[in-house]
Simulated scan of single mutants.
Amino acid sequence: MEKSVATLDKGTICSSWNYCAQRLATGSVDGTIAIFDTSDPASSFFTSTFRFKVNDGSVVKVVWVPPEYGDAIACICSNGSLSIWEEVTQDSEPVQWKQCKVFGGPMDQVLDSQFGNSLFGLKMTIAYSSGLVKVYEILDSLELKNWQLQAEFQNVTDSVTKYGKASCSSASISWSPQRNEARPSSFVLGFNSDTSQLNSPKVWEFDKDHQRWLPVAELADPGDKGDQVYAVAWAPNIGRPYELIAAATSKGISIWKMASNPDSDGRLFVDKVVTFPCHNNQIWQMEWDMSGMTLATTGTDGRVRLWQSNLNGVWHEQAVIETTT
């Protein structure tokens, strides 16, 4: 039997779940962020405990900062700004959410941002409407206002070639969920832009020896490298000898298998496992479950679809969730 777990504000258009703290953050068209908690650990119903205004425009994305760095969120607004808000308690004053950093804006719009929690500290990747990618790192784990620019580059496999300012309408970033000394920090990124070279999803790894980010894989067939990318999602890996990454374009949702170890040229072998046609349904968002076995997608058709692989490795649509009203 289906059961409601929260009643969201009217105008809610984005949300993010904090698995560790069991909290929900939502963003609305009126620029408001709402935080939901449950007062009883045994209860599964969440109510709004904090509500605060972050922008005059709408909030288009909200994401939690990794829990090791406190209770904090980042939100992207329709004016292109990215702001980081932290829950703080000062002496006997009530708990408040305070803004501690702002990136981007109308002249340099942020399209997407994701945190990467490596062994060497907290990092954040930001994709801009100009086609630039910037990676920041935190200088002090207790100060979310102190970020340092670590790298700036374009999403191309040939890092020597530079392209002019692009016009990008969206971007999608997904960090590798793995954290161990054997694997370098890495993320996948794709653009929806007018510059085909920037679009295809590329996997970037941090080269510790030379202190730079390098493209190590491209998730696109030769004829599809210019296709505009709507979403990417890197699956958690529990014991697999390879990585799984999902990428959505106008041609469908593709599941890619990527080798864990590079070849002699430092590249990672990739193989497209399957492509699910979208049937004119533009994908908005994709997310894997914590086991990396089920992929959830949502798009313009208003449905949530769950995709799974059977024991023979054959992928199929496992379920479709539709609204009742």
Rank of each mutant, 00 (worst) to 15 (best):
S170D: 09
L142D: 08
S15I: 15
D265N: 15
P177C: 04
A246K: 00
R51C: 09
N146W: 04
T32F: 13
K162M: 04
N312E: 14
T300E: 14
S28P: 02
R303A: 09
P236S: 01
K162D: 00
W288D: 07
G299K: 07
M290G: 02
F276L: 14
T325N: 13
V229F: 03
G164H: 08
N261C: 04
N199Q: 09
S169W: 01
D224K: 13
T195D: 01
M1R: 02
P277C: 10
S4G: 10
D56W: 06
E287D: 13
P277Q: 13
A319T: 15
G27S: 13
V62E: 07
Q150H: 12
S129T: 01
A34L: 13
S78E: 14
D56G: 15
Y19S: 03
T161G: 00
F103W: 08
D91K: 10
F52S: 13
M293N: 11
L111K: 05
S200N: 04
H210R: 14
N310K: 13
S174C: 04
G299P: 12
S176E: 03
Q318D: 14
P41F: 10
Q154W: 06
K10T: 14
V65A: 03
K3I: 05
D112F: 08
S16F: 04
V5C: 11
P236V: 03
L82W: 08
K208A: 08
V5I: 12
A21N: 10
